[in-house]
Design a protein around this nucleic acid. Structure first.
Lengths: 234, 234
DNA sequence: CCATATCTTTTGTCTGGATTTAATTTCTAT
DNA sequence: ATAGAAATTAAATCCAGACAAAAGATATGG
């Protein structure tokens, strides 16, 4: 038996339990002892065990169900967390100089594909923007964005000459929900030219749709420079 | 003043506080009331407020520091969470038929670039594997993998004809840490042929390095089919 | 035999207190 | 003034006990 620490913090319990799972003391599928039992073993309150186990469940190590109890996950689906910083901060934190350039700005009727994606009426007006974010004068990200003007009317009076739409929106419009999709796309001739890349280059692409309590706010396509990598530790 | 619910759960407090931040009642940078004060307002115990605020801090909405108090984050760095399931489960959950094929298997001396990446001695032996995961008979993912045999000696006696290295490793070798990198790569002629794609097609690529308490276990390159998208809601 | 109601178990949440810890401010001796 | 010590403050953790809620188990009536 692993002799429990005299004063077990919830952290200590977490590491101890994790250790037992790793050491196959509790192989996948095992039904763990209940909280009361564990609290006795670790000489602590049930609430402390509860916190430890709750966090392990959040991290995807165990499954918990009322009445049934707690089991070690069969397929431990660890999850990767990516922090999505402002592009400007990401460039500046890399010690590079950030520059922003607006390429195109036009108020227009929402194209049909956008109406479908955002559930907009076919009469909706949107502000379409294209811009480039530079790191040390080399193109880092190309951004194509559509802003729903009925949700964000004040966007119409913003020129977006000095501040990028992403940063402007974050500062002026809160959101309740967002969908983020990553994929790889080939650079079209147009995008390749703007980013000083050969046509057909592979670009990591993020598509982002944002809502403010059911009202669609904006849709954006973000094309990262070829060299861009998104990294995380889990 | 937002009149607090009579019996506020930590969830209710979270949504209420979030609402105030969204409504600019507490703009970015604001110093929020202390836990005791909030507990009075919400008519609950301080621990309940603490849990609400702790979770908001974890989610990146606020910053907390002892003595200084709690502030609304200036640049709210929301973070995206991607669950990385087993490729087999991902395909099966999509209602498709999963098939696995081993293309190549060879024990070899670790190439220099791999020694650098995994901090291996130049004499290290690795098992190099290449395989393809099919969804309904069309190539879904190409996997190139190197397993450190000094960390996982029993991999040498596994043929990997029936089970993919990813799944085998998950079932046989725990890990403490992993680094995951996403980028877009162009399909080489070799990869294009194996995945029935035109040469130069853009592929979402994941690179994964895994350690078991400082000992490097494996490095893998996972090339997803062109159509693959990685999506999450935040 | 089946559907429904009741019991029981286990986790989930809350309370109202306490102690610990980190960081800031204030004080003190050089 | 200034470096270090002490006081202060707010969050972080913990506790012992309580009740709520979900879900499995069991009993009951048709």
């Amino acid at each position: 038996m692993t002799q429990a620490a005299k004063r077990a913090s919830y952290q200590a319990i977490k590491t101890d339990v994790l250790q037992r799972i790793r050491d196959n003391v509790w192989p996948p599928g095992t039904l763990l002892p209940g909280e009361i039992e564990l609290a006795e073993e670790f000489q602590c309150a049930r609430a402390t065990v509860n916190r430890a186990m709750r966090e392990l469940a959040e991290e995807g190590v165990i499954d918990r169900k009322r009445k049934s109890g707690t089991r070690v996950k069969i397929a431990p689906t660890r999850q990767a967390k990516f922090t999505i910083p402002l592009i400007r901060l990401e460039i500046e934190n890399a010690g590079k100089n950030y520059r922003y350039a607006l390429v195109h700005r036009q108020k227009q009727a929402a194209p049909r594909w956008l109406c479908g994606r955002l559930a907009l009426p076919s009469t909706a007006q949107v502000l379409h923007l294209q811009c480039i974010h530079y790191a040390d004068e080399s193109p880092f990200q190309y951004e194509a964005r559509w802003i729903n003007l009925s949700a964000v009317p004040k966007a119409e009076s913003e020129s977006f000459e000095k501040i990028g739409p992403n940063e402007w929106l974050i500062n002026h419009v809160p959101f309740t929900e967002a969908e983020l999709t990553f994929s790889a796309k080939s650079a079209t001739k147009e995008i390749a030219a703007m980013m000083s890349l050969p046509e057909g280059a592979s670009l990591l692409t993020a598509e982002r749709t944002t809502w403010l309590s059911d009202a669609p706010v904006t849709y954006a396509q973000l094309y990262f420079h070829q060299s861009y990598k998104m990294t995380t530790r889990i």
